[in-house]
Design a protein around this nucleic acid. Sequence first.
DNA 1: ATTAGCACTCAAAAACCCAGAGTGCTAACC
DNA 2: GGTTAGCACTCTGGGTTTTTGAGTGCTAAT
Lengths: 343, 343
Amino acid sequence: MEEQLSERGKRILEAVIEDYIATAEPVGSRTLTKSHALALSPATVRNVMSDLEEMGFLTSPHTSAGRIPTDKAYRLYVNSILEVRNLTRDNREEIKRRCQLAGRDISEVLKETSRLLSSTSSYMGVVMAPRFAANVFRQLEFVKLSSHRVLAILISQNGAVQNRLIETEVEISQDDLVRMGNYLNEQLKGLTIAQVRERLLSEMKSEKVRYDAMLSQAIVLSEATLKSDDAQIFVEGQANILDQPEFHDAAKMREIFRAFESKGLILDLLDRAMQAEGVQIFIGAESHLVKMEGMSLITSTYMTGKDTVGVLGVIGPTRMGYGRVIPIVDYTAKLISRLLETE
Amino acid sequence: MEEQLSERGKRILEAVIEDYIATAEPVGSRTLTKSHALALSPATVRNVMSDLEEMGFLTSPHTSAGRIPTDKAYRLYVNSILEVRNLTRDNREEIKRRCQLAGRDISEVLKETSRLLSSTSSYMGVVMAPRFAANVFRQLEFVKLSSHRVLAILISQNGAVQNRLIETEVEISQDDLVRMGNYLNEQLKGLTIAQVRERLLSEMKSEKVRYDAMLSQAIVLSEATLKSDDAQIFVEGQANILDQPEFHDAAKMREIFRAFESKGLILDLLDRAMQAEGVQIFIGAESHLVKMEGMSLITSTYMTGKDTVGVLGVIGPTRMGYGRVIPIVDYTAKLISRLLETE
DNA sequence: ATTAGCACTCAAAAACCCAGAGTGCTAACC
DNA sequence: GGTTAGCACTCTGGGTTTTTGAGTGCTAAT
């Protein structure tokens, strides 16, 4: 049963996949011979397709419909058949243009990137921001807003900013706040945010702190600032997938939207994608997430310097234009990496 | 034709509206007499309904279906028939619990509020953040990230933070940046952000700046920080409206999602809602936005101290549980107002 | 090995029918 | 007068049946 795939078999499988990608309809032997110049009769094609079905590359939704590619077929396709097109100059220009980070806040840029991915691919764009905790600490700032309210602002070396409003037990003067800030900035210079946190937690237990009320204040404040660092994910262009014919019916649509409403699902996926460097492709059930059947995900990691810090990508139907989307994702990731470089 | 609406007419109209809200089906005379204890025969009800139709409160999708309320009917209903229920204690507790702003960044809180509105109403939640420009300036901070990159952080009195990455032409030392910051903070104390901007623009033209390179740098930097203040809008729970039977068919769904994808539409609406203080209700076509037919919007403004600074609300189908949603919106707005008070 | 031919299959679309809910009107009723 | 029972009529939605057409698998001829 597991005989090798012939050259002709490959050609035909490719044709089927491409037709199916284009039309979303099961493709039959006759249509295939017409659209692709195969110099073969429908009957022959039928035989080959029958073989392909046996090998698990095609299925038919029912007898007497055409056939559609299985996940396994897509896998083969992206691995060894597909040749990735280059981006057009225009495409590249547009991506570059829209990824300017000057003059904007960094998460704005990532959001825009997500939007960009969505609109150039016409599927859904996804960007996971660098985990704040992995960034290098740059500066911590306390600003007194009112008697018992302090705004803590935490700045990382790459320009990400987080802030928290803290209700303090006792009133602290702005001067004291500044002093705390200076002290901590001095202490924490060069650590990653995660390390900063560890350091603070251990200090909290130390003897010294017991006797220095202000220091302990500072530590409580900054600890409050640091806790709960949820990954930021930007998902854009959900409406795009509504245009895909496979989701035309209302029930399916609802399901999809429900699934993506909480970002947990996407987070899981992206976390997985972050394990390995570079472009990765998850096809349908491969992701082992039930909700993802019928959908594929193309991701690429991006980095600052040598460290992988985030992932971005495109989610679309399994039946998606891999050849077109892969280079988009790839190029965008590279661009973002370049932008984030701290010179 | 424009005779007054009798007491009985009102009662029946109310019954129709309530039935329709509950079932989303056109309601007929017979069902009406059954569900509401009206002590009238279907025939009589029919007569009255016929009158109501003539007056423009009801329409029938076709002969021999029941009737459905028009926008005009809803208007009358919310204005003079409906009595707004009070919130249950549980409801109030939950809203309070989820609106804690301590420990979080202010826009996080507003986003959560939007989520809250959506989940308690089971429609779509909308929150427009205070226009940053209207806030009172608190502090401006420049942080050097790398040779030509400066992060500018702008903090307002109420704890909102905006930051921008700025690529500078020439390298500026961190010391100089601090000095610039101090100078500007001194100068700009107490102004609103909008005023700050005006002030800077006018300074840029003044003679003094010509001769002080650093000052002019500072002004360029902060001007870069201030420009482009787009309103922030948080929309949550879009998937909720997919459950509404009136949007069950795929085409409608798509339309809705497309409409809300760009937030411009919502922005227009909310801007309008901000004109007047307190709870406002826009029913269907009243908003004069084509896309909004079939949908209603319940909003309330919220304030810090005496100034209206933002709006929040719920978007749902015209056929929505006004009596239930209005107090939710109202209460939430009041709560947010209280939270934002600068003590 | 390939292909033409043919009988067979099945889903989707069209055509059709029917029941049910609703209406408007008229005539009787209180 | 307002109210109600009765009746003929209308329309939609749902279910069933028919038709159509694309597609298959097999066999026999090339």
